[in-house]
């Protein structure tokens, strides 16, 4: 899993590097606009445009049929039934592009989430780290926590029932920090200085295929007696547009949709 995940991260690092000098919002905006156009182009290439146009025309006719015969409930019901049937066929037509786009979309989504979804660690702002052990928690005296670039804020809270250990850390600078728990090393916060670099919000020593879609969780080497995974309570990034607070998902969805709409018009895509 590690090499695949690392290659993917490297690829996106390279792709997004040119936007690294921009403020995060502008970087995300550009990525959203390009993603929208890219996805609409893929949709055009993969979908059966003739069939979709035909179904849209037919559904338009069925809606008009309902309006034209509104005083005749029997006819209206017949048209409503036909409309629902056409709509189901239409949805089935969307299945192929949906399946084709699902994997790349989820990869892109994960990468953007990792890069634009959260701030890195702020100076003097404590971050809670929760570490999960697989079987049984080591004894308190056997617990070894070391930090580089950040300081540990006691106490160390051990929850035996959940096999978890929690503690707080405070960054010493905005640079990335590193955590070492019983031999397992993992990064916290940014992996680079530039906007658009990954912000690590956890680690996983026993990764599954799913970790390809969550690059904010660092894939680490498993150490005997070390923890399985961990996660950090980093704040989500807040994007301010005209005084409104937007999450990265809102920015991405809205602007990719707008660019997709414009792209659909420009590329004459039937959706």
């Amino acid at each position: 899993m590690g090499p695949a995940s690392a290659s993917l991260n490297a690829l996106f690092d390279a792709l997004l590097y040119p936007l690294g000098g921009l403020p995060a919002f502008w970087g995300l905006l550009l990525v959203s606009l390009l993603s929208g156009i890219g996805m609409i182009a893929v949709f055009k290439a993969v979908s059966d445009q003739e069939r979709i146009a035909d179904l849209r025309r037919r559904m338009g006719g069925e809606i008009l049929g309902i309006l034209l015969h509104v005083s005749s409930p029997g006819t209206v019901l017949r048209f409503a039934g036909r409309l629902i049937r056409s709509n189901t066929v239409y949805l089935s037509c969307l299945l192929k592009p949906l399946l084709v786009m699902a994997l790349p979309f989820m990869l892109v989504w994960g990468q953007l989430e990792a890069r634009y979804g959260a701030e890195g660690m702020e100076e003097q702002v404590p971050v809670t780290v929760t570490v999960q052990f697989r079987d049984e928690l080591p004894a308190r005296e056997d617990m070894l926590v070391q930090l580089t670039g950040a300081g540990l804020v006691p106490p160390l809270v051990m929850v035996q029932a959940l096999d978890q250990v929690s503690f707080r850390v405070v960054a010493e600078s905005r640079a990335d920090a590193e955590l070492l728990v019983n031999g397992t090393a993992a990064g916290i916060g940014r992996t680079g200085e530039w906007n658009g670099s990954r912000v690590l919000r956890g680690f996983d020593a026993a990764p599954s295929l799913w970790r390809l879609f969550t690059p904010h969780v660092q894939v680490v080497r498993r150490v005997s007696g070390g923890p399985d995974s961990g996660w950090y309570s980093l704040e989500g990034r807040d994007y301010s547009i005209f005084g409104w607070h937007w999450s990265w998902t809102a920015v991405f969805l809205v602007f990719s949709m707008l660019s997709a709409l414009a792209g659909a018009r420009f590329l004459r895509v039937r959706i």
Partner: peptide, 21 residues
Amino acid sequence: YVGPGAGFGIVTSFLVFINAI
């Protein structure tokens, strides 16, 4: 939300269902 194309399609489909009803 799997891409704007399919996303729009799914959203408008639900609007069509609601409209018909």
